[in-house]
Design a protein around this nucleic acid. Structure first.
Lengths: 356, 356
DNA sequence: TTGAAAGCGCTAACAT
DNA sequence: ATGTTAGCGCTTTCAA
C-alpha cells in the first residue's frame, strides 16, 4: 500500500469540512495542518522520519478534510505504479474468476493491485486492451495464452516490465509463463479412455477457433486416439447459450445420430454436466454403457448426481504463481531463473470413467 | 478512446527500433519525426488541425518506435481520466459477471473504461478499495449496494464525481441508484407461494450477515408469510464450498428434520438447483409434493431436468443503466433527473412452483 | 497549421 | 526532522 488510509478508518461520523467541489491537494492538507507539503507527503506515505507530533497534526488534517491522494501525480513524479495488468478472455466461465482470486490473494500484501481487462477471445480486442493498460505504465502484465498478434507481442516485449503468460505452456512465451500443457491434458485423457476399453468416442466442444487451449486439448486427444487406431466417431460444437442446456442438447442429438458411442469427451465441465444429467434421465448406465469426461475441475461438479470425470486446470495455482513472479521482480529486480513453469493437472476419474 | 492506437494495427511484422529499455516519450517520437512535441501530441489524440503530411510522418514514427502514450502524464495535465471505478463484492457467483458485461458493453463506445475492484462483502475492504480507486481520480463510481461505512459514504460524496449504487433500491443512495427492491422480491415470492397453497415452508440461504440484499429478500419473505399467519417452518444457512453440493446437503438434512415441509425457498439458484437434483433423485414429486424456488434467474437453470422457479435480478440491465448514467454525466455535466431507478424483476414459475 | 511556455500534483534529491 | 527546488511527460493556452 503506497498510501495508508488511516484517515478513513471508520471511527464514528467523520467531520466534513470540504465544501469545495474540487478534489483536495497536498497543499490543502499542508495549509490546514501548518506543515510543509513535503512533510505531509512523507506522513501520508509513511516514509522518512517524521516526529510523532507532526505526524498527528497531518493525519488529523487529512482525515478532517477527507483527503484522498492523487496517485496520478504521485505515479508521474515517482515513476512507479502499483498496478498489475491482468488480461483474460472473459469472466463468464468459472475458470478465470478463480485465476483472479489466486492473483489478488498473492498480490494482497505486496502493495500491488491487479487491474483486469477482458478480450472476449478476440486478438484485436486483446491488442486494444493491452495498449490501454500499458499506457498506465503498470508494474507487470499477466496475460492469458501464448498466442497474440505480432503487435501485441511487440508491445509486451518493449514495455520493459515483467510479463507472464498464463494457462498454457505449449508455445513460445514472450518472457515467463505459467500453465499446463493442454496437449498433454488431451493426451492423458485419451490414454485413460483407451485403457478403460472405450472404443467409440464422441467429442463436444465450443465453436471457438480462437480458444487455442481447447484446440490444443482436442489435438492432443485426437492424435493419441489415432495412435491406437481410433478416430473420433462423432463431434459437435456449440456457441452461446447456457452451457448446461447446450450439453444436454448436443448429447441428445449425438447419441441419436451415432447410437453406438460408448464415450463422450466434453471440452468443458459445464456441457459435460448437461450431458450427464441427460443420460441419467434417459436411464443410460454411466459409466458402463457410456463413459463421460469433461475438463476443468469446477467446483460445481460436486453437487451432481454422479461425479464427472475431469481434469483440474490448476487455476488458483496459476494465478498465485504468476502473481508471485511479478511481485518478485517488482521487489528484487532479479528476474526469476525459471521462465516456464509447467503445472501438472490432476485427473479425477469421478464416477463417469471406469478405471482400467 | 483518448488515444487512437492506429500505430498498433496488426499490419504484418512491425519494425522494432527501440533498443532502449526506457519507455518512449512524446519527445522520442518528436525527434524521430522532426515534428514538435505539441503537434505529435495532437496527431496521437486526433485533436486540432494537423496537415495530412505531418500526420503521416508522426504516425509512421510512432508506429516504427512502438510508442505507447503515458496516460499518467496525460491525465495529470488534462485533469481527465477515462476510468470508471466499479466496485463489487465478488465475481464468484454468476451475478456480477453479468452486471459487468452490461457495464462494459455500454461503456464501449463512450471512451470510458471500467476498472473493477472486489470487496468480498467486507466493509473495510470496500473502504480500502474505494480509497485506492478514488486516488486514480476516475470519472465515476459504480458500487454495489446501499450499505457502506460512514467513511466510504464520505469519500463517495466528496469525490465530486457521479456515483451510482447498484443492485438494490431499498435505502438511501449517496447519489443515483439502479436496482431492484429485494424486499419486494421476497414479498412477491411469498405471495405466490401462499397463493399456490403451500403452507409448510423451509428456507435455505448463505451465512452472510453482510449480504444485505439476501437479508432484505428474507425479511420481505418472512414478513409477508407472517401476514398470512405463516411462519418459516425450518431454515438453514451455509458458507463456503460448492453451492450445488451445499444445496443438496442442506435439502437432505432439512427434509429429514422437518418431513412435513411442502415448499423450499432458496436464496440463490445454485443451491436451489442442488436441492432440485436431490429431490428428483429421491423420487419426490416436484412441484406436487414439494415446491421449490430460487433467486437470480441464472442461465444455468436452462439445463436442469426441471426449470426452477426463480426471479430475475435484472443484472445486465442494472449494469447497462448504471453505466449510461455515468456516461451521460461525463458527456453533459447535466445530472440525470431520475435519481432512483427501480427495475422490476420478472417471476418465472418454471416447473417447480405450481400456479394458483 | 504549428510552436513555446507554463503548469497539472506530486516526489526525488538535496539542502538545512 | 523539516524544507526547498526541480522536474515526471504530458496538455492547455496563447502566440506566431
Amino acid at each position: 500500500m503506497l498510501f495508508n488510509n488511516a484517515a478513513f478508518q471508520n471511527t464514528g461520523r467523520p467531520t466534513v469540512t470540504n465544501p469545495i467541489k474540487r478534489p483536495l491537494t497536498l497543499r490543502d492538507v499542508s495549509e490546514a495542518s501548518g506543515v510543509s507539503e513535503m512533510t505531509v507527503s512523507r506522513v501520508l506515505r509513511n516514509k522518512g522520519d517524521v516526529s510523532e507530533a507532526t505526524r498527528r497534526k497531518v493525519q488529523d488534517a487529512a482525515k478532517r478534510l477527507g483527503y484522498v491522494p492523487n496517485r496520478i501525480a504521485g505515479a508521474l513524479a515517482s515513476q512507479r505504479v502499483n498496478l498489475v495488468a491482468v488480461i483474460i478472455p472473459s469472466f463468464g466461465n468459472m475458470v478465470f474468476p478463480e485465476v483472479l482470486s489466486g492473483i489478488s490473494e498473492t498480490l494482497e500484501d505486496t502493495g500491488l493491485q491487479p487491474v483486469v481487462g477482458v478480450t472476449d477471445y478476440l486478438p484485436e480486442k486483446e491488442e486494444h486492451v493491452l495498449f490501454e493498460m500499458l499506457s498506465w505504465r503498470p508494474s507487470g502484465v499477466i496475460i492469458a495464452g501464448l498466442e497474440h498478434s505480432e503487435a501485441s507481442r511487440q508491445m509486451l516485449m518493449q514495455a520493459g516490465i515483467p510479463v507472464v503468460e498464463i494457462m498454457d505452456v505449449d508455445g513460445e512465451p514472450v518472457d515467463a509463463c505459467v500453465g499446463i500443457s493442454h496437449r498433454r491434458a488431451g493426451r492423458i485423457m485419451a490414454e485413460e479412455i483407451i485403457a478403460a476399453g472405450y472404443k467409440r468416442i464422441g467429442f463436444m466442444g465450443t465453436k471457438m477457433p480462437l480458444d487455442h487451449r481447447a484446440r490444443k486439448r482436442f489435438e492432443g486427444f485426437t492424435r493419441t486416439l489415432a495412435k491406437s487406431g481410433i478416430e473420433i466417431a462423432d463431434q459437435e460444437f456449440y456457441s452461446g447459450g447456457s452451457a448446461l442446456a447446450k450439453g444436454r442438447e448436443m448429447t441428445a442429438k449425438m447419441i441419436e445420430r451415432t447410437p453406438d458411442l460408448d464415450f463422450l469427451y466434453y471440452s468443458n465441465d459445464m456441457i459435460g454436466a448437461g450431458g450427464l444429467l441427460y443420460l441419467l434421465e434417459k436411464g443410460i448406465d454411466v459409466p458402463g454403457q457410456m463413459g463421460l469426461a469433461g475438463f476443468n475441475g469446477v467446483e460445481l461438479l460436486d453437487g451432481l448426481p454422479l461425479q464427472l470425470a475431469t481434469m483440474d486446470a490448476c487455476r488458483r495455482d496459476i494465478g498465485a504463481r504468476s502473481a508471485r513472479i511479478i511481485a518478485a521482480q517488482h521487489a528484487d529486480e532479479v528476474p526469476a531463473d525459471e521462465k516456464i513453469i509447467t503445472l501438472t493437472p490432476k485427473l479425477a476419474f469421478g464416477d463417469t470413467l471406469r478405471r482400467s
